[in-house]
Design a protein around this nucleic acid. Sequence first.
DNA 1: GTCTATATATCGATAGAC
DNA 2: GTCTATCGATATATAGAC
Lengths: 199, 199
Amino acid sequence: MTASGARVRAPSPTRERILDAALELFVDRGVAGTSISDIERAVGLAAGTGSFYRHFRSKEDVLVASFERGVLRLVEETAAARAAATDVANGTERRARDCEVLLAEMQRFQPLWQLVVVERDRYPELHRVFTEALGVAHWTFGWDDDPTWGVAVAALAGFHQFTLMEAAPYRDITPATFIAVLVDVTSRSDRRSRARQQP
Amino acid sequence: MTASGARVRAPSPTRERILDAALELFVDRGVAGTSISDIERAVGLAAGTGSFYRHFRSKEDVLVASFERGVLRLVEETAAARAAATDVANGTERRARDCEVLLAEMQRFQPLWQLVVVERDRYPELHRVFTEALGVAHWTFGWDDDPTWGVAVAALAGFHQFTLMEAAPYRDITPATFIAVLVDVTSRSDRRSRARQQP
DNA sequence: GTCTATATATCGATAGAC
DNA sequence: GTCTATCGATATATAGAC
């Protein structure tokens, strides 16, 4: 109760902790692999007592709520990070910096991205929330009409996947090395073939 | 029984069908989301009777066996497809053809790749089987020392991921269009910077 | 090789005492 | 808001008849 008498509707702290813990469990073990008891245990409630149901109506309820919360939080954080990024001159330096930022963002979005792909058939809601929150322009960085940037974005996503998998041929290549090669390969054709995007 | 009296150890047909059905279920629903009854039902056995256990000792048993079988089968098929591919002159034509072949392979490996990533913490055996079966050289195509091919491989993997996700900015771009752009962007620096791979 | 029947544990979810 | 107690359904797995 505030001094003015006006009530600030504070969110239930237990509910908040459930949202965080549940999303982490869903990402780590999948939805089917996570039980309500697991969630209760993770937030310090007695497992198997159903205390969870005082905060959410079902497993799907907490799944969607925690996912939505996680996506919105990430979008805000990445937007803030981009806004705080120091300005760099255009050209290859700027290109390399954008690649670093983008790769870091892909790494941060990876758990939620994976959850969408894995649970898509059972919970299409996740895909809807994810794509709506990110929007079409999220990965373009103002390079919209540059086909070399389209290739760079895809290459960063692929490099990220290979690294995550610890798969050949990228097992031992650092992000800095890959970005250097990527910028080198894709920055020598900036002045050509802009109308190549559509068949 | 053969005429010579020599016995050919024919694999149990039910066991074979379980291997195929189980792998498909694991890919579609995850391991935790697939029950033994689901597997029995999928091969025409009465669900919940435990007939499954006459063929495999546990869920993990059939998981590893079916995954190993699936990986080896895919490796053989892709090797045969590459061997049967018609020869194309070197240069951009050859590069485009290799990109098409590689993208098609990534699409075929996608379900098993995803299963490895998702279940890796609980079943690290899958990751071991997958990487051992593919080997370091699987994606290089004889372009080992060409950094532009390293970028192309990563870009194809990324394009595949974005397409799978129906995510921006690749939602409406066809594989043929992307490969055309990719070859165009990466084929103009073949004669330069071969020593750029290590930092 | 498939079935009936069952043991044991856990699942998601609810009712009600405190 | 958390607990005890419990429901009905389902999970993995086994024993034994056919």
